[in-house]
Design a protein around this nucleic acid. Structure first.
Lengths: 142, 142
DNA sequence: CGGTATCCTGCTAGATACTG
DNA sequence: CAGTATCTAGCAGGATACCG
């Protein structure tokens, strides 16, 4: 386990803002997912999280630590090494995150189709529905 | 069905900000819950949602309508009557909301205990743990 | 009743730069 | 490497008032 984290683990074209769903703040669910297969270092987390700033990652991890979702282990080495890991409580969130991802996989295309057609009809007097075949052009849920 | 909505349906002492979990924005999950047992009128929704302003409730409902989660039906009567109802898509969110509430019921006390003890130890040099018997003083998940 | 229209504020989170 | 320190902007959400 604990293989390298993929920089493309989270599709930037699939912003979680599309989900009618969030775990905590903007990044918490993704951190939980990143820690699923074992402890990770600060810099390691920055790879899949890409656009996150160190400041925000620190804040996110501190908040999660405070709530007992992750542990922070600092090894007194040089260069410094710090590892973050899920607690059992944090791990219990995984089922919720998975349920949310399952919902997205099943329903995202319908939601996006509804959004598109409502966007169209509010701009265009003649709707021209374009019923949007399910599972065609939407971004996949990773 | 469709009995009156309880003004105490959502405990104000149990802010959803405590949950490491949200459906969409601040109010969406609560609206979904309010519509669980049948269509509701605008004013009816304001009762359990209490502190929500008309503006924000309108925004929330419009966003949900746009995403195909609710329907808005306006009856041409006097006084005017408008009803909001869950679509099948919106209804499918109920299982997710329920999963989240189940998580809260099971784990909230542990999370709050962790938060309390971490708050203490950051203020107080001698932690004085107070292990927080589970299920004692926390607010219930409704 | 079922909303709009304004105005306003706090806070999340991004940009950027620096450090033990 | 693993963060801090500042500064700033955007925007969700709230207060208040008014309307068809």
């Amino acid at each position: 386990m604990t293989s390298q984290l993929d920089a493309d683990m989270f599709d930037p074209a699939c912003p979680s803002s599309v989900m009618p769903f969030r775990i905590g703040d903007k990044w918490t669910a993704m951190v939980v997912l990143c820690l699923e297969h074992g402890p990770r270092r600060f810099s390691e987390l920055r790879v899949p999280l890409r656009t996150i700033t160190p400041k925000v990652l620190t804040e996110t991890l501190r908040a999660m630590e405070r709530d007992g979702l992750v542990t922070r282990t600092s090894y007194d080495e040089n260069p410094p090494r710090v590892e973050y890991a899920l607690t059992p409580l944090g791990r219990s969130l995984l089922t919720l995150v998975e349920a949310a991802r399952a919902w997205c996989r099943e329903n995202m295309s319908e939601l996006l189709a509804a959004r598109r057609s409502s966007d169209l009809s509010s701009r265009d007097p003649s709707p021209a529905p374009t019923p949007a075949r399910p599972g065609s052009d939407e971004q996949r849920a990773r």
